[in-house]
């Protein structure tokens, strides 16, 4: 039995301990904002925050999550999350939208540590998140805009 908190609520799981966190979140907890894109940590669509750090949930066995705090797109809060989501909406970043939960989770984590990121900082945080629609141009702009907005 594995216990952890998911968006602040205590949860437990007693299935196959190798089950990736991604599938626990999606199949068992039925939170579907976290997406499957590759299953091998190459695309970032499954990004969550695990104990405050970005984590690719597709390669995270649930057995390693015991006692941890997991935050998904449905539970992301705070000034960085608000600023990032507002910036995303303001310039219509998403196209198909499938990767955007992961993009936003990475962008929020970036701003939590680096409030005023450079382009290189953005590459450093975001290069693990694929977008096949190639909305990268707007992702970059939205992160800068979110940083500016937080600075007030």
């Amino acid at each position: 039995m594995v216990t952890f908190t998911l968006n602040g609520k205590e949860r437990s799981f007693d299935g196959d301990p190798d089950t990736p966190l991604l599938w626990v979140i999606r199949d068992f907890e039925k939170l579907t904002g976290t997406k499957y894109g590759c299953g091998v940590a190459q695309c970032g669509a499954c990004t969550v925050h695990l104990d405050g750090m970005t984590r690719r949930s597709c390669i995270t066995p649930i057995s390693t999550v015991d006692g941890s705090e997991v935050i998904t797109i449905e539970g992301i809060e705070g000034p960085e999350a608000k600023a990032v989501q507002a910036a995303w909406v303001a310039i219509d970043v998403p196209q198909c939208g499938y990767c955007q939960s992961g993009q936003i989770m990475s962008a929020v984590a970036l701003l939590q540590v680096t409030p005023k990121p450079s382009d290189a900082d953005i590459d450093g945080a975001m290069a693990g998140n694929l977008c096949r629609c190639a909305t990268y141009h707007r992702i970059r702009q939205a992160i800068h805009n979110a940083a500016d907005a937080m600075e007030g």
Partner: peptide, 10 residues
């Protein structure tokens, strides 16, 4: 690693 994609992301 860099904030947002530290080594322990994967």
């Amino acid at each position: 690693g860099m904030p947002g994609m530290t080594c322990n992301t994967c």
